[in-house]
Design a binder for these strands. Structure first.
Lengths: 282, 282
DNA sequence: GAGTTTATGAAAAATATTTTTCAGTCAAGA
DNA sequence: TCTTGACTGAAAAATATTTTTCATAAACTC
């Protein structure tokens, strides 16, 4: 139940100081309740014990629980940017447009959650030629990981995409050296085997792990030295990976731009090898 | 100064656990910071002392001051969410945000370019249980195609992802019946072999081709009965596939929602088979 | 590879916060 | 006016929270 409702429900049966308290609380709801019990006491001109009793009276376990509830409400009620946005353009509707608007908003959120410095740092790490780069993702998110490794491979040497099958993992682990990068993408419905891989790579080999994950943080987080948090809630049945893809693309594009000379040469060389085969079809 | 800005400002000079902390904080800003230092520590997989030091580093007097600031911001922002949001955006620029803004624009374009009627029609085609669905993409765009087939497979039977290697294609072609769907994703640097596949499938087998492509229209277009045009120019060195992914996600989400009962059952059955293996790792 | 620096968390200490106890106050009724 | 009972806050006690200290581990440098 909402805290506000609880207060209203108990209103008929309140003492003088409790009413003072209730008024103070509701006058600046829910922020007044976020101060310490002392501060709130001062503000409402009521002693701390009265507050303690009040909180018990409205059926909560204690002042801390009371605050937790308020925060939860606030978070809940926090009008998501999506809603704000949608109100903005109320007109255009349609399933697709709606979906896209949400995805676009989540992308914005991703942009805000990743600092510029972090972005630069990760680009730099992925650019250093001495480090090898190993890339892997989860069942679904491997598509994102593939995108990364594919483009990274055009910009530099030493990029390996680790296959799904755990059987060949040791082979890749053996190839890793200290300081090499293991870039992992893991979104919810985290895979236990990826966590094991992370553990091994960081503990045994000394690889540096860069993790792209959602806000609940995959268990890999504890081994990671860089975390790229990306929102994935689309407000629908399934998650959206568009923000993750956008961030990935931003990374690889930046890296390619920074190393343009090498990238251009590599693409050229690569095309020369690929084109003759391209039309080969039975 | 906003706490978020403080974090960004200090980002260049952070240790590993501080970065983890920053990521956690920003991923669920500002609510993550409203928990107790212990809880936050648990969430970010970092010790309480590290948080204490972190808070000092970003120039605040202590955890309590940090929380007070967050609450003040929250209260501030509550007044006029839209304005605050806008203001935020304007300031922070940077490569990533810039990139994301472009991608978001392109997504809008995609939304406008696909009519609601077409979107619905394609969803319906992909939902009809009698038609089998074959999916394939180009070298890079197969990422998008994989996403489609993966999710589609959760909503229905008879979904096949055609592998890269041309050698096995005939096998798939033999399996196709008139009226089956061949969903192809092909962006510039079109692959000749895909065009051949399209030609064969439509002329010989009588499959219906749905094509997702960019505005230059892949050579497959002439065989396609539905074309989903998606913009891919990012204004940078490389193209962006975010709009394509967003459209794909919109499709599969809509389809799953429309066939929710079946989808739910399939996912459940699927999980039952998958979970026991999930932890299987050497 | 040895030595130095730096970062980290466990434990202890310090601090802040909340709850309980308890004595005083006040109002209502005899 | 006295008694009774409920309400209140000061102070103490109990808790929870935060910060400091310190030993260890990791990373970096020469």
């Amino acid at each position: 139940m909402q805290v506000r409702k609880r207060i209203e429900a108990a209103a008929s049966d309140m003492t003088a100081s409790e009413r003072k308290l209730a008024a103070t609380l509701l006058a600046d709801y829910p922020f007044a309740g976020l101060a310490s019990i002392q501060d709130l006491g001062r503000k409402a001109e009521v002693s701390a014990p009265s507050i303690s009793r009040f909180v018990a009276k409205i059926g909560l376990g204690g002042y801390q629980e009371f605050q937790r509830d308020l925060i939860a409400e606030l978070k809940e009620g926090q009008q998501s940017p999506v809603e704000v946005h949608r109100a903005d353009r109320a007109v255009n509707g349609g399933y697709l447009n709606d979906f896209i608007a949400r995805a676009a908003d989540q992308m914005q959120v991703a942009g805000d959650a990743i600092t510029q410095a972090q972005f630069d740092r990760i680009c730099r790490l992925l650019s250093e030629p001495k480090r090898k780069i190993f890339v892997i993702g989860g069942r679904i998110s491997d598509t994102i990981a593939k995108h990364l490794s594919f483009h990274l491979r055009q910009a530099r040497t030493g990029v390996f995409h680790i296959p799904d099958s755990t059987e060949v993992w040791p082979e890749y682990l053996l190839r890793m050296k200290q300081g090499d990068i293991l870039f992992m993408v893991d979104f919810r419905r985290y895979q236990a085997n990826l966590a094991v891989l992370a553990e091994t790579a960081s503990a045994t080999v000394g690889a540096r792990i860069i993790l792209m994950t959602d806000r609940w943080l995959s268990p890999i987080a504890k081994h990671a030295s860089e975390i790229l948090p990306v929102p994935i809630e689309s407000g629908t049945l399934w998650d959206t990976y568009s923000p993750a893809l956008a961030v990935t693309e931003a990374l690889v594009t930046r890296i390619a731009e920074d190393n343009w000379d090498e990238t251009r040469d590599r693409i050229k060389a690569w095309d020369a090898l690929r084109l003759p085969q391209q039309d080969m079809i039975k």
